[in-house]
Design a protein around this nucleic acid. Structure first.
Length: 271
DNA sequence: CTCTACCCCTGTCTGC
DNA sequence: TGCAGACAGGGGTAGA
């Protein structure tokens, strides 16, 4: 479900509602999500005051007095802050119960998400250690991309979705970025000239920022902390539009598989 | 080292 | 109406 803009939208939604609250207890209703849930999670978190809610890539980082809570939403995760007395529904797997009577609740149909405790330096956690730069930071620039692209011949779309290259770009935004750049998704990354790489950098930043500004993209079931959808779907130019006319040249949008993922592009505009 | 195929899981939609 | 199969916004891992 969520790529960077959706995770950032969730972060902004929950942070003001849970910061400065003390965790009373943790309720886990399934033994595992992506990984087995830490049986000591309740013990580790109880009594701790929430300091801040950050984000690295598609991971939410809840800073505690001692350590961090790392939350990933996988494909179908929904985080919301609800009355702790509200009866859990199907797939409500984890509750972080707060002292003010509310709780941070994770619903995750497919259970590809994760809730992990990390002590010490969260950036040294194996999940975060090898991640590429944040796309909206200055570290993500054309010189960096050129360096990474040099000896790599994978299709540009796979390259952009590789979280070791740059984080946060998922299946929807990868197709959208490539359309805006006029680059065919199967083009080997090492054959793309520097000027085009520069365009990729700019469009990645632009698309992700625009999507954040619109509260993310809701295709099917993404919702923010208040249960509302994102509005960037209206701005999608190729994703999910196979068979429809290109917004620019009116030729048909095509759908192919790349790395097992659906990929959308305009045969005419993207070479 | 890089890159693909497969796997985790449930729900929904399509075609027979 | 039932059923099998494909597919869905992510990403770790085994093996080539």
């Amino acid at each position: 479900m969520p790529e960077l803009p959706e995770v950032e939208t969730v972060r902004r939604g929950i942070e003001p509602l849970i910061v400065d609250q003390v965790i009373e207890r943790v309720i886990c209703r399934v033994p595992k999500l992506r990984w087995a849930l830490d049986p000591d999670l309740n013990e580790r978190l109880s009594g701790q005051k929430i300091q801040s809610v950050g984000r690295r890539a598609k991971y939410l980082l809840v800073r505690l007095e001692e350590g961090f809570l790392i939350i990933h939403l996988g494909m179908s995760g929904i985080l919301s802050v609800v009355d702790a007395e509200m009866r859990p529904v199907k797939h409500d797997h984890v509750d972080i119960v707060l002292s003010n009577g509310y709780c941070l609740r994770l619903n995750d149909t497919r259970r590809f998400g994760a809730v992990l405790y990390s002590d010490g330096d969260v950036n040294k956690n194996p999940l975060l250690l090898l991640l590429g730069p944040e796309p909206l930071s200055h570290d993500f620039n054309v010189s960096y991309l050129e360096q990474r692209a040099k000896n790599c011949k994978s299709p540009v779309k796979n390259f952009l979705m590789n979280q070791k290259v740059v984080v946060g770009v998922g299946n929807i935004y990868a197709s959208e970025v490539l359309f805006r750049c006029g680059i065919h998704p199967e083009k080997p990354i090492n054959e793309i000239p520097r000027t085009q790489l520069g365009k990729l950098v700019v469009e990645i930043k632009t698309v992700l920022q625009e999507a954040i500004d619109q509260g993310g993209t809701t295709i099917k079931d993404f919702q923010n902390a208040e249960g509302k959808p994102g509005y960037f779907k209206q701005q999608l130019r190729v994703y999910g539009r196979d068979g429809e006319p290109c917004v620019s040249c009116y030729n048909e949008i095509r759908k192919i598989k790349l790395g097992g993922r659906s990929t959308f592009y305009c045969l005419e505009c993207q070479k």
